[in-house]
Design a protein around this nucleic acid. Structure first.
Length: 270
DNA sequence: CCCTGAACCTGACCGC
DNA sequence: TGCGGTCAGGTTCAGG
């Protein structure tokens, strides 16, 4: 469910409830996530949460003694609930606070993760090699252009590679390429600097707009307060294969690229 | 190093 | 109603 806007929406939703609060306990009902949930995290009581930050699609819950590194995978979500709310199926982890609130992690497919580190989380092996944040100036046309020389991958796969830039998943890759007028299959070394200038702009634009609307709600995703996001109402291509292009009114093409569904307009995108 | 495809897992949906 | 196939917002890993 989560790309960068959904993770950022989650972060903003949980931060005010967690900051400066003391952990009472962490209950792990199902430790078989992407990687086994480490046993140490069930012993974090009395630690105070100092900050809730994000790097790419990873949420970082920093405490006085270490940092929880959380990823929502494909189907993960987090809600803030009263501590005595009965858990449902797939509610794998509760972070219970002394103030009687509970951060509950739900993840049917279990592609998400909860890890724990005592050192700088940005130096963790999963985070260390991540590309720049898309909404910073480090992500710019010159950077992308430089990284694409001598490479032959399709542009859509390239921008979805977290070593290149973090946070761009399947929805926003499709949308950004549509807005930039670029064919998702186009090999990166055939695109010029001007294409990258345009693409950087549309990626930033689409991510910012999605964050503003609380993310995209498809199927069951909701924000940390249980309410849906509204960005899906503004999608131009994602999930619209076979429907008409909002610009030229011709039928949108749907293909598979790197095992992911890819929708684009063969007239407007070249 | 570059690139592709399999793998991880559950649930919803579609056609027969 | 049941069964098999396909698809789903992500990422790592093995192998050519």
């Amino acid at each position: 469910m989560p790309e960068l806007p959904e993770v950022e929406t989650t972060r903003c939703g949980i931060e005010p409830h967690l900051k400066q609060q003391i952990i009472q306990k962490i209950i792990v009902r199902e430790a078989r996530l992407r990687w086994p949930v480490p046993k140490e995290i069930t012993q974090l009581s009395t630690h105070t949460i100092t900050a809730v930050t994000r790097r790419g699609k990873y949420l970082l819950i920093q405490t006085t003694h270490g940092t929880l590194i959380i990823h929502l995978g494909m189907s993960g979500s987090i809600r803030i609930l009263p501590h005595d709310t009965l858990p449902q199926k797939h509610d794998h982890i509760d972070l219970v606070l002394r103030n009687k609130l509970c951060l509950r992690f739900t993840d049917p497919r279990r592609f998400g993760c909860w890890l724990w580190t005592l050192s700088d989380p940005l130096e963790h092996s999963l985070l260390k090699t991540l590309g720049p944040e898309p909404l910073t100036t480090h992500f710019n046309a010159a950077y992308l252009y430089q990284r694409t020389r001598n490479k032959n991958v399709a542009i859509k796969l390239f921008i979805m590679n977290s070593q290149v830039v973090v946070g761009v998943g399947n929805i926003y890759a499709n949308e950004a390429l549509f807005l930039a007028g670029i064919d998702p299959q186009r090999a990166v070394n055939t695109l010029e600097y001007v294409h990258y200038a345009k693409l950087v702009k549309t990626i930033k634009k689409v991510l910012k707009a999605a964050i503003k609307l609380g993310g995209t709600t498809l199927r069951d995703y909701t924000k940390s307060d249980g309410k849906p996001g509204y960005f899906q109402q503004t999608l131009h291509v994602y999930g619209r294969g076979g429907k008409n292009c909002s610009t030229c009114n011709r039928k949108l093409t749907e293909i598979r690229l790197g095992q992911r569904s890819t929708v684009y307009c063969s007239t407007c995108q070249n």
